[in-house]
């Protein structure tokens, strides 16, 4: 029920409420945490930052939930990227060795291929995801939301059981 609550809140936020940069910022933070293995120092710091700042928490947890599933399918790709970055680029090995000797290194698990691969991917996609999320929220609020709700397809779907579940979720009071 915890995640359903955040999904419901996120759907509400998409329609109206907090400013798109705050929602998109939360979404990006959730994206980074969701796409990388959870138990690392950097993810804890991102979550602490999300809690302390005014980004939208519902979008953080929704993105975490969503990208955790997506990350499952891309796991082998992250492993390959991570292995390449950690073991096959000779020039950065001194850097990794130095970081490896820091006392906090074990908490970051940067030396793990999946952690490194997914982190590099997340960092590379941070700005595009933020940009697309912000544009998407603005577009949804201004045009897409109304158009989508008046489309024949949606009207047909509204009679569907799944849609009724969606409405119940959307209007749910927590």
């Amino acid at each position: 029920m915890f995640f359903l609550q955040f999904i419901s809140k996120f759907i509400k936020v998409l329609r109206a409420g907090e400013s798109p940069p705050l929602v998109a910022g939360g979404f990006v933070m959730g994206f980074v945490v969701g796409i990388t293995p959870l138990l690392t120092l950097q993810n804890v710091l991102i979550l602490v930052a999300a809690i302390l700042t005014r980004v939208n928490l519902a979008s953080v947890f929704f993105a975490m939930f969503l990208f955790s599933f997506i990350a499952f399918f891309f796991d082998p790709v992250f492993h390959n990227i991570g292995y390449f970055a950690l073991a096959q680029i000779e020039n950065v090995k001194p850097l990794w060795t130095m970081v490896y000797n820091w006392p906090i290194a074990p908490f970051t698990r940067f030396y793990n291929t999946v952690v490194m691969g997914s982190l590099l991917t997340a960092l590379a996609l941070t700005w595009p995801v933020y940009f697309l999320a912000k544009k998407g929220i603005i577009a949804y609020r201004s045009t897409w939301g109304e158009k989508i709700e008046n489309s024949k397809f949606i009207k047909a779907v509204k009679g569907n059981v799944l849609f009724k579940w969606y409405v119940r979720m959307r209007d749910m009071e927590w």
Partner: peptide, 22 residues
């Protein structure tokens, strides 16, 4: 030190690459 690449590690576990510790 890790001896080579593990081609298919378990999902979400990856492979730990060891570096020399001072």
């Amino acid at each position: 030190l890790a001896s080579g690449k593990v081609e298919k590690p378990p999902r979400f576990e990856g492979q730990d690459i060891r570096f020399p510790l001072l």
